[in-house]
Amino acid sequence: MVTQFWKNILKKISSNPFSKKSHIKLGLYGPPNGGKSTLANRICLDWLGEEMSTVSHIAHETREINIKEQVSIKNKKGRELTFSLVDTPGIATRIDYEEFLKKGMKKTEAKKRAKEATKGVIDAIKWLDNMDSVVVVLDATKDPYSQVNITIIGNLQARNIPVLIAANKVDLKKSSVEAMKAAFPQYEIVGISAKYGKNIEDFYEQLFKLAK
């Protein structure tokens, strides 16, 4: 805790408050299957013309930290923001290889995936300290009060890392951005569909505010 305090002080001293940051490390965090990689792909497709991650309906598809350097986005006012986009594995408190068996995987494959997934969660948590800003990608059809959501957001707050919450999957009938807003009233929340690009312009505008 003391180390973290000094890290935060050093971080503040080393940054020039009069210069506008143009290159930041932007992390995508959240529980598995919230749509982090889909959002990473959407951002990269929109601004670089290529995808960066593979996506799947089976949880823990992303099991390693993926980084896309030099992603530049522009807003309507012509401002440019350049960042390294960091797509992280979903953070979970439980990983059972038998869940993968139910999705039709073979036992060896399922066990391997589970082992890689546990390492991915550990890496994602360790990488929290490297982030300048974070977009927490949450599935808007799911319970916002999940402890994983609260722990991720709480840890970002404890590290003084600016947070934007992307309430994803608003194209689905069950989604509720309002429920997300009620659960996290102190945070900026933008409802999006990373898959179909719904409301993505608002999301990009929010990124500029996040990186201020």
């Binding site: 439980r94 990983i95 059972d96 929290l128 722990t151």
Partner: peptide, 26 residues
Amino acid sequence: RKEEEADLIEITMEEINAKFHGIELS
């Protein structure tokens, strides 16, 4: 503490094996 919650998840992941599949936390 918040950092300890993250530590709990991290250590849980390190301990996962054929018998222990993790935790539920609230």
